[in-house]
Computed example of a mutant assay.
Amino acid sequence: MTEHVVIGVDSGGTSTRCAVVTRGGQVLAHGRAGGGNQYSSADPAGAFESVLRAALADAGDITVDAAVFGVSGASVGDATAVRTVTDAWKALGLPGTPYVTDDIAIAFAAGSAAEAGTVLVAGTGAVAAYVRDGAVARRCDGYGWLLGDEGSAVWIALAGLRAALASIDGRGRPTVLAERLAAALESTPGDTQSLVRAAYARPPAELGELAPDVAAAATDGDTVAREIVADAAERLLTNLATVAPDPLGADPVVFAGALLSAGPVADAVREGLRTRHGTTPRVAVDGALGAAGLALRRSGAPESVHARLLEPLGKASDPRAGGGLR
Rank of each mutant, 00 (worst) to 15 (best):
V6Y: 02
G8D: 05
D10V: 03
S15N: 13
S15T: 12
T16Y: 05
V20D: 02
V21F: 01
A29Y: 01
A42P: 09
A45C: 12
A47P: 06
E49K: 08
R53P: 05
A57F: 03
T63Y: 07
D78I: 00
T80L: 13
A88R: 08
W89N: 07
G93V: 05
T97R: 09
V100E: 04
D102L: 00
E115T: 15
G125E: 09
G125D: 04
R132C: 12
A157Y: 01
L161G: 00
A198F: 02
A199H: 03
D213F: 11
A217L: 11
D222G: 07
V224L: 01
E227T: 10
A230W: 05
D231L: 15
A233D: 05
T238M: 13
L240E: 04
A241E: 10
T242G: 06
P247K: 02
G249H: 06
V254T: 04
F255L: 12
F255W: 09
A262G: 05
G263I: 08
A266N: 07
A268Y: 02
G272D: 08
L273Y: 08
V285T: 15
D286T: 10
G290F: 07
A295Q: 07
A295C: 11
G300A: 06
S304Q: 12
H306C: 02
A307E: 14
P312I: 12
L313E: 13
K315D: 14
K315H: 15
P319Y: 11
R320E: 15
